[in-house]
């Protein structure tokens, strides 16, 4: 981990807290799923936390965030209250989307968190439109759009990049390359080779590949990308190399991955790595960090209690929110 800018210890520790929050939140989500409190599809972000946290640490409140169905990490990193997030997963009226969207479709208008999109690739053109609105309104607002390596093969990916470049829109396309789309390794699905970020060359979009297991590397890459977009220079493409530690969803027995590959990536777990960094370079103490751990865990327990105690949506909610 190399740092160009000077960050205060408080800032650095806040990144750690956020990553830990996502990790603990999702570990408990998996348990809640087994208990039947969370249903449907549950896609965990465990292993990829450094990306959301590093990226969001750069964004301003007015910026837009758009993402896919693996969205808990992005929502929490953006500042969504864990209580409201957990309540949504429990299908409760107090959830961020009143219990109507569930895990794959988190939204929070107050945070300009414009949603989790569950149709692979579908969020990319929508994000282009948000950037178009900002450009038309003359606002220095940037849209960051996350997507997975699986989305590379949808026509919408190419259509979105082309349009954004053609119109010089203020958008950062953020690829979370965890090497797999469900059970399919990228080598078997994408003909363009491993350096996926080079796909952006074709559309004359500047691109950069970063280490998705290193929160500071992600932050630094995002700083450059967002600055570029904010200055009106057009879109930017970021690729973070990462790995999901769990199955695609709770239903996935993960029979298609090599154990040695899994172990190699788990050895690069972004959390212990950043913990070491804080201890060695930011004069953090083990005591401080375990105190944070305790606070985070209490926060997650509180979120579960809140979700559990919250009421179901009332029956009439079924027919509400269909039209504006």
């Amino acid at each position: 981990m190399q740092l160009q800018e000077r960050l205060s210890k408080t800032e650095l520790v806040s990144f750690y807290r956020k990553m830990l929050l996502i990790r603990r939140f999702e570990e408990r989500c998996a348990e809640m799923y087994m208990l039947g409190k969370i249903r449907g599809f549950l896609h965990l972000y465990i292993g990829e936390e450094a990306i959301a946290v590093g990226c969001m640490s750069v964004l301003r409140p007015e910026d837009y965030v758009v993402t896919h169905y693996r969205d808990h990490g992005h929502a929490l990193a953006r500042g969504m209250d864990p209580k409201v997030a957990m309540a949504e997963l429990f299908g409760k009226a107090t959830g961020c989307s009143r219990g109507k969207g569930g895990s794959m479709h988190l939204f929070d208008a107050r945070l300009n968190f414009m949603g989790g999109y569950a149709i692979v690739g579908g969020q990319l053109p929508v994000a282009v439109g948000l950037a178009l609105a900002s450009q038309l309104q003359g606002q220095p607002r940037v849209t960051v759009c996350f997507f997975g390596d699986g989305a590379l093969n949808q026509g919408e990916f190419h259509e979105a990049l082309n349009l954004a470049s053609l119109w010089k829109l203020p958008i950062v396309f953020f690829l979370e390359n965890n090497l797999y789309g469900m059970g399919s390794h990228i080598d078997r699905t994408y003909a363009g080779g491993r350096d996926v970020f080079k796909a952006a060359d074709h559309y004359r979009i500047p691109a950069y590949q970063t280490d998705g297991m290193d929160v500071l590397a992600v932050r630094e890459a995002t700083l450059r990308a967002v600055e570029h977009a904010r200055q009106g220079k057009g879109p930017y493409f970021l690729e973070a190399l990462t790995y999901r530690f769990r199955g695609h969803s709770m239903a996935d027995p993960v029979e298609y991955r090599d154990k040695a590959e899994e172990e190699a990536w788990k050895a690069r777990d972004p959390l212990p790595a950043f913990q070491r960094y804080l201890l060695e370079n930011a004069s953090a103490t083990l005591e401080e960090l375990s105190h944070i751990e305790q606070e985070v865990e209490e926060g997650v327990e509180e979120a579960i209690r809140f979700a559990d105690a919250s009421p179901e949506p009332p029956p009439q909610a079924l027919y509400e929110d269909i039209y504006a």
Partner: peptide
């Protein structure tokens, strides 16, 4: 309506 997530709905 679009399909709601919450079990009761």
């Amino acid at each position: 309506t679009p399909a709601p997530y919450a079990r009761n709905l």
